[in-house]
Nucleic acid binder design. Sequence first.
DNA 1: GTCGCCTATTTGATCGATCAAATCAAGGCG
DNA 2: CGCCTTGATTTGATCGATCAAATAGGCGAC
Lengths: 342, 342
Amino acid sequence: MARQPTVSDVALAAGVSRQTVSNVLNAPDIVRTATRERVERAISDLGYRPHASARRLRTRRSSTIGIRLYPFAGGISGAVLDRYVHALTENAAERGMRILLYTARTPDEEIEQFRRLTDGADVDAFVLTSTFHGDARTGWLLEHDVPFATFGRPWGDDDLGDPQHLWVDVDGAAGTAAATKHAIAAGRRAIGFLGWPSPSGTGDDRARGWARALRSHGRSPDGLRWAVEDDLTAARAAMAGVLTGGGPGPVPDAVVCASDSLAVGAHLAAMDAGVHDLLVIGFDNTPVSEALGLSSVEQRPEDVAVGTLDLLMGAHGTAVDPSVPRTGTGHVLVEPRLIVRE
Amino acid sequence: MARQPTVSDVALAAGVSRQTVSNVLNAPDIVRTATRERVERAISDLGYRPHASARRLRTRRSSTIGIRLYPFAGGISGAVLDRYVHALTENAAERGMRILLYTARTPDEEIEQFRRLTDGADVDAFVLTSTFHGDARTGWLLEHDVPFATFGRPWGDDDLGDPQHLWVDVDGAAGTAAATKHAIAAGRRAIGFLGWPSPSGTGDDRARGWARALRSHGRSPDGLRWAVEDDLTAARAAMAGVLTGGGPGPVPDAVVCASDSLAVGAHLAAMDAGVHDLLVIGFDNTPVSEALGLSSVEQRPEDVAVGTLDLLMGAHGTAVDPSVPRTGTGHVLVEPRLIVRE
DNA sequence: GTCGCCTATTTGATCGATCAAATCAAGGCG
DNA sequence: CGCCTTGATTTGATCGATCAAATAGGCGAC
């Protein structure tokens, strides 16, 4: 038989109707055991596999999640997203879902992609990975009843509690707090924080964790916080000044950083200055920090991926069904983990 | 109207039949201009978009290409593949194709995925990214008439000329030759090569480029070639011995490497040994070499992606159609580019 | 005038599955 | 015995598009 077998072929072989075959696949519990076993044998004998497009046409569901692939930034931090996408693909497959990629250069272009993919019933839901304040994309998706979840909190506080907006995020403050405590335990006396300029939702959160950890040990964070754009060279230059005592504040013997880019910059600045015992802790645990033997806070992209799917499909769901009322808080906060090196 | 408009709605609005609407979309040249314009107006008035699954069911084509996402290796070299996947997604979108991800832990698991995705008419073709000698996957795909292309030459020579097997690859020898010539031009006298143990298709190819460049300048490669597994620590250890003069050969003042992992290892070994003028050139131009300011051979993943689609769909094709006879040689060899830093 | 030919358009069938409603069989109970 | 309920299975319609074949209309040739 050249043609792939269909439900009808299976039905014929098993001596039942099409619908019963369909039931064996989609609602096995309503089929009598004897019948079900007969159908299952026919399925495996014929090597039958459901035709995904036909099913999608009828059910108006695609079992597919769309995710945007960002242009290669040329930098370091893409690695977290790549791990996330991989974990998402793997876990989605276990639940019978697939991941479809798309690209866009601007938010408007992305909304245009939303249109294309939802109108064609190509995807059931979207995962957004970099949301920002006043993001038009989440508005569009809510308005058109398209399920979605974001990796990253909606930092506009109005949306934070909105149970309609599902989000997963990493508890950045907990991560930097753990890093800071590690530095304290290692006997460091002046523990600084190298972060990004305020306001930055993620960046300020990470700074808070560091400050809180210091205070809870009776220390003051004053004068030990520096901010530069997320760029290796900028970080290197800024830390060069700090380490040679050129700045107003004290000279640190440890630096907790908001990203691995900054950490590598700090590390190189220390090398430049001949300082060999500066404890540098990065964030994201990218290959670069691994290569240089720097400790780093690991975001656990795998756990974030599982959390994302739990939100979209329910903890044990196997489909994205917007009509099922949501249970739980509508968000997941993943505890990061400090990877200690050297 | 809550429901998305269909061809029938458009047909009604434009006063034509369903099929004419379909023709406007798929074969505009056979529709009279006046009619076409009327239909096009109705399409945009109603905001009609074709239902992808319905079309796929009927045409038995999905306009989708499957690509495997590899488990996060924890290393450095994943970056090239990530850039490649991104470029593939972007270029595929321009041709009306989509990229679907899947994962697998073993070749057998991957073949199982081939089955699932082709039987369900989920994908039209596959792109394989890491082929090896005697790969069962290509055999399965050929046997089942599933179109595919590989990023990477089939190193088993029997397949190299087989026009059935489409492949794109980067001319690694040209890349290492360019790196070697750069070192010669920079006045280096003892230019070594740090690569992987033989036999390795890709690795031996890269070594050849280095040796050839040296010989064409009247120099001998003897005693300047070292081989370790693709691992930073192993490279660092190996080069430590070489740089301190502990080895049998001469001490190099430049090292061309088969990968950025090796290059970073060599660079760190030089730092350890207090050697500050060792010229290290990597391969893959990953964020790590960028961060450390090392020169590196860039694989041009974007060009590789374009080449892949050209092979699968024809230079200007917009669909994967196995019935169209193949033109050209069936493979593309991309010339890499040396990125010079510092 | 009408026959054939070409082009533009329409009609009916079909792709492979699921939905909704109908049918059938087996008990339970007054 | 007859009626109702429950559970298992079947039947006919449908999702939205394209394919293949049929039809209508215009034009030139005989």
